[in-house]
Amino acid sequence: MVVWERPEPPSRPALAPLSREAIVRAAIALADADGLDAVSLRKVAGVLDAGPMRLYGYIATKEELLDLMVDAIYAEIRPSGTGWREVLRSLAESTRQAVHRHEWFADLIGGRPQLGPNALARGEAVAAGLGAVQVDDVMPVVGAVDSYVIGAVRREIGERRAERASGMDQRAWQRAFGPYLTRTFATGRFPALATVVHDAAHLDADETFRIGLDFLLDGIGVHLSR
């Protein structure tokens, strides 16, 4: 059949454009919806309507993808303020807010320092904001705040996950276990704990975080004033 008579082959769709930024955005969307277990290069490729092998031209391993995801979230953490206390409070609160937007982030912060461009920009903003603090105190002070925040948000996220797994919110959990605590405290074996549970103010997560952070910042202030 001559060329003029030969039918043209079916048209093939153009390959979807790719970039590391697009890959990371898709991975974050998967993690936000269904947790880190939902993230794989194959699933990300499916979201982007691309073959998995195409992604390897941009990202070599899942570990690299997780590093890029973490660094993308660091772009949301931009401490600000005047003076060391405002900067550290802003650091703590903005980190907590980022974790509550991206629950999976609580599983990946901590450990070795993050060296991506957004993490370094966050570190630069904090170090610059602590300009009056002695250089030898900068890393210990920031480390103390980071440790407090990481511990606090992991507890909060753990409670949120437990609620989802059990189907009981905090009030339902208290109703379920309240009678047990009443019987246990009635034995007189835990008088100090019973007093705290019965008489102390019951704070919500926001208040607990703020007061704990105030305790830490007050201690840092004492150290810096020496």
Rank of each mutant, 00 (worst) to 15 (best):
Y74F: 15
P117W: 12
R171D: 15
R175T: 12
G35P: 05
V135K: 12
S19F: 04
L91W: 07
E103C: 12
W173T: 15
L108S: 01
A192C: 10
D204R: 06
L65E: 03
R54I: 00
V153L: 01
V2G: 15
A50V: 12
A162N: 06
W173F: 15
R78P: 00
R226L: 10
D169C: 10
E159M: 12
A132Y: 07
P52R: 11
M69E: 06
A50S: 07
N118F: 02
A29I: 06
T182S: 11
L224Y: 01
K62V: 04
T208C: 12
P10A: 10
V197C: 07
E63I: 14
E86D: 13
V145A: 09
P9L: 07
E93V: 09
E156S: 15
E93C: 08
I23S: 00
V197G: 01
L65P: 03
D136I: 15
L115R: 12
A75M: 03
L181N: 01
Y74C: 08
V149Y: 01
A92W: 01
I150Q: 12
F105N: 04
L203P: 04
F215E: 12
A192D: 13
E124I: 14
Q97D: 14
V24T: 06
G57D: 13
A192T: 14
I73L: 10
R175Q: 13
R6E: 09
I157G: 04
P52M: 02
R101C: 10
E8R: 13
P113C: 05
D137N: 13
D206W: 00
R25E: 15
I150D: 02
I157D: 05
V133P: 02
G131K: 08
R6A: 14
L115K: 06
T82G: 04
A186F: 01
A29V: 09
V222C: 14
L224V: 04
R210L: 11
